[in-house]
Design a protein around this nucleic acid. Structure first.
Lengths: 237, 237
DNA sequence: CGCGACTGTGTACGATGTAAAGAGTTAATT
DNA sequence: AATTAACTCTTTACATCGTACACAGTCGCG
């Protein structure tokens, strides 16, 4: 009665499909498919997720996958949801700052373990169960601020944005391929004084482990302080 | 003497290539290529950037493009740099808060006009001239805080992260395809109380124009307040 | 003039996503 | 028990796309 607007793979992840009465039982579940696709991406990046590769590992033909997912992009969506996993239980008794902080650090860890998730091109909001679980967990944490729902949602969005950008930056500036040196050879100090100065000062030199815990805590405290200000100002809006 | 580590297309964008002495003059410049590729992506998304499509619009064969860019991903990188454009001149006399705010709003506007830039899968940090120009502009603005360079860079990163996440969210939650309704049909209120409540309260209902200026100012003030706290605390670290 | 450097072309191939038709399998229906 | 509908997986085929390779034409230096 509801076509639900969700893709086949996502619908299957939610487990709301009634099992068909006739016909052979499927030899694989969407969860298995998602899991295999995730492993492939963990190893070789998102573009390594191909219908043939995933099917092959499952002992199926390429086309058999289409019984479980609508398309490659559905397959990727399903893999991405699997990569998120369930959020850890939060310490419900703690204050909002600690809870939100924990949530952010957990998300960061999860995304860093599967950084290719950032490469997923999404059409529409993520609707997988794990995605929703993280959202729920985050909203519970930020709800402790007492902010009105709209403000809380926006604030959580800022936190999430920070985490994702952190992961993204980590991949880019992390394992230095001599980026700083390459840039130095083309940047004109007169045109780009600030960048040029930073380059000379070594600000961009390959931080072996970027972001360090320090970097994370730094940015996180900036964001959380901002939210604190907001609360103090009495959630207008 | 220097292989510079940059791709052919990016190097050409910087204009540091010495013109070859012999041989026919190229019929197109990398800037033209980038511009055409950008227009294609503006119209039909990043995946519409194909070698054939770009070459076709320029009256070239597919293979001719390889004289100017190394690969498709180089082509996309070059198009993305073009899409950023040059950052607007900032009001240098203003305080840091206003300058950084302007910078962020400008970046937001630019990215919203070419949201596909967020879909670019980057291998290594962005090294195009426009990208560096934005970086320079941002670092000049945040430099006015008086924070030490490392802290300033980290803070700017938070701002940039916020802007990008805002654009990303805008695409996802914006022109509603009935996402909220679809989710409501699968979410169990007992399992995900916070999301469920928000769904019922209409928090996720299609905001016609999301993010509104209000949403942006809201998040931006959170971020800037955080930075202000940091300054007040006397930039430790 | 001719040689070398360079730009663009034509052809070919492999990888990939997916449409279409069919063979085999299971359970409800007769 | 036979039939039939619903379902899963396979086979085959094809269009799209990135790119390697060989080559033809063009310009400037010696």
């Amino acid at each position: 009665m509801e076509q639900s607007g969700l893709s086949r793979g996502i619908r299957a992840l939610w487990g709301v499909e009634e099992r068909p009465r006739r016909g052979p039982k499927p030899t694989v579940t969407v969860h298995e498919i998602a899991s295999v696709a995730m492993e492939i991406a963990d190893g070789d990046g998102i573009q390594a997720i191909t219908m043939a590769a995933v099917a092959g590992r499952l002992g199926l033909t390429t086309m058999a996958l289409y019984r479980h997912v609508d398309s490659r992009s559905d397959l990727v969506a399903v893999a991405a949801d699997a990569a998120l996993g369930r959020p850890p239980a939060t310490s419900r008794r703690a204050g909002w700052r600690r809870q939100v902080g924990e949530w952010a650090r957990a998300e960061l860890a999860q995304l860093q373990a599967h950084a290719w998730v950032l490469d997923v091109i999404l059409e529409g909001p993520p609707a997988g169960p794990n995605n929703v679980a993280w959202m729920d967990s985050g909203m519970q944490a930020i709800g402790r601020t007492g902010l009105d729902p709209q403000s809380a949602a926006s604030a959580l969005l800022v936190v999430d944005g920070f985490v994702r950008s952190m992961v993204g930056q980590a991949r880019q500036y992390g394992p230095g391929t001599g980026w700083a040196r390459a840039l130095a050879s083309v940047v004109d100090p007169d045109e780009f004084p600030a960048v040029s100065t930073a380059l000379e000062a070594g600000t961009f030199d390959d931080d072996e482990a970027f972001p360090s815990d320090q970097d994370v805590e730094f940015g996180l405290s900036v964001v959380l302080d901002g939210i604190e200000q907001l609360i103090a100002a009495g959630s207008r809006r």
